[in-house]
Amino acid sequence: MLDDIDRRLLRQLQADPTMTAADLGLRAGVSALKATRRLGRLQEQGILKGQHALINWAALGYAVGVSLRITLDKTQARAFDNFIEAARDIPEVTEIQTFLGRVDVRLSVIARDMPHYQTIYRNRIMGLPHIADIEALMTVATLHDDESLPL
């Protein structure tokens, strides 16, 4: 699927996603034109989904991070769909994941401080449909945060 050139390009792109195609090509040992074509092919194949900004929420005043593990009342036919649709409307929810098992959904929530989190929890989270059980895990420290793959 990936050859050595693709791997070199992706490694360089993971290390510094702001590099131009010319810089990527130079560091990967290919021409800028070849780097551009390869990156385009990787995008067409769905391997390279795009470039994203990583936001330091704490620097913007969001000091509290909470992971909510939620079990839904699955006796309702559209429990997942209704819940996810409503959860997407909460601006402080930064991530929604679904699972197989006892826990159905995990929400990542950010807040400025604990009073702000309590307001979000009471006024928005608890109003989400079909919640059977909820467990909150507060982030104390992030010890490892690396989404790059070993290419």
Rank of each mutant, 00 (worst) to 15 (best):
Q43I: 06
M1K: 09
P115K: 01
A79V: 04
A77Q: 13
P150L: 12
A77F: 13
A58T: 12
R38I: 04
I120W: 06
F83P: 04
Y62D: 05
D146V: 08
L13V: 07
D16E: 13
L143S: 11
Q51V: 15
D81Q: 14
G127Q: 14
L2E: 03
V105E: 00
V93M: 02
V109K: 04
G61H: 04
L24I: 01
G40L: 06
I5D: 10
L107T: 00
V103N: 09
P17F: 01
I110G: 04
L72G: 05
G127W: 08
A111F: 01
G40Y: 05
L100E: 10
D104I: 07
L60T: 05
D16N: 15
R7S: 02
R7V: 05
L143H: 10
G46C: 08
L2Y: 05
R38K: 06
A79H: 07
E135K: 11
L24N: 02
D104N: 07
L100A: 14
S108G: 11
Y117W: 10
V30Y: 03
S31W: 06
E44G: 03
L42Y: 00
V93D: 07
P115I: 01
G46V: 01
Q43F: 08
V30L: 07
D89P: 06
G29Y: 06
N123Q: 15
I47D: 01
L149A: 14
V105N: 00
D81A: 14
Q14M: 10
R7F: 02
L137S: 15
T142F: 12
D23I: 08
P150M: 09
E135N: 13
L68I: 07
E147K: 14
Q43R: 15
G127V: 03
R7K: 13
E44H: 07
